[in-house]
Design a protein around this nucleic acid. Sequence first.
DNA 1: TGCTTTTATTAATATATATTAATATTACAA
DNA 2: TTGTAATATTAATATATATTAATAAAAGCA
Lengths: 100, 100
Amino acid sequence: MKTKKLNVREYSEILKALAHPLRLKMVCGLSKKGICNVGTIAEQLGVAQPAASQHLNILKNAGVVAGYRKGVQICYKVQCPEAVKIIKSMDIDFCKEKHI
Amino acid sequence: MKTKKLNVREYSEILKALAHPLRLKMVCGLSKKGICNVGTIAEQLGVAQPAASQHLNILKNAGVVAGYRKGVQICYKVQCPEAVKIIKSMDIDFCKEKHI
DNA sequence: TGCTTTTATTAATATATATTAATATTACAA
DNA sequence: TTGTAATATTAATATATATTAATAAAAGCA
C-alpha cells in the first residue's frame, strides 16, 4: 500500500481544485463528516444543485474526492490524503463544524 | 502581535496563488532560502525575467510574499505564515532543495 | 410503463489567467 | 548626464474558469 510521492505539477493541481471558497468548504466538510450526498452538500452550502455537482466534478477530476452511487443518490468522500493534510494545516473554523 | 484568523475566502486566495507549478516552486524555494532576488529566481526556475516578475506579483498581491529593494535589485521573501504552513504540509522534494 | 427524485451534462456568457514579447522604469556607476 | 543592469509594466492572444439556466440521464417506486 505504498503511495507514490506527488510532484510539483500534481500538487498544484490539488491546490487549484481547493482554491475556491465553495470547494474548500466542500472538502473541509467532507473530511469532517466522512461522506455526504450531492443534495445535502448543495443545501448546506446554499448553492444550486448543478453548481454543487460541477464543483464536485472538478474535485473528482483532481482526485481529491470520489463518488459512489448509493441507490438514487451519489455520495462523495475525500479520497486524497495529500489534500487532507493541506486542509488540516489550515486554522479554519469552517472546517471544524460538523455540517458542510 | 496577534494575527487575525483567516476566513475561507482569504484561504482560497492563498491557495489560488500557490496553485501554479512555478509559483509553488518559488514559494518553496523562498521558504528554504529566506530571500532571493528576481533574476536569480528566474534563472533557477529556467524562465524569462518578465514571467518570473509577473508570478511574483501575483504572489505579492495575495500577500504570500513581499519584496523590498536592495540597491538595483529587488529581493523577495515569504511573508505569509499560513502559506508556509501549507507548504510544510506537503511532502515535496523540490521544497527541500537549497536552491530554487 | 410512467412518474418522481437525484444527479449530471450541456450551453452560453462573462471573467480570469497564462504566455510571450516588447517596452518602460528604477537605481547606480562611469 | 549617459549608460547599464535589474525589474516592472503593458499589450496581445490563447486558454481556462465561474456562473447560471436549461435539459438530460439514472434509479427506484407506484
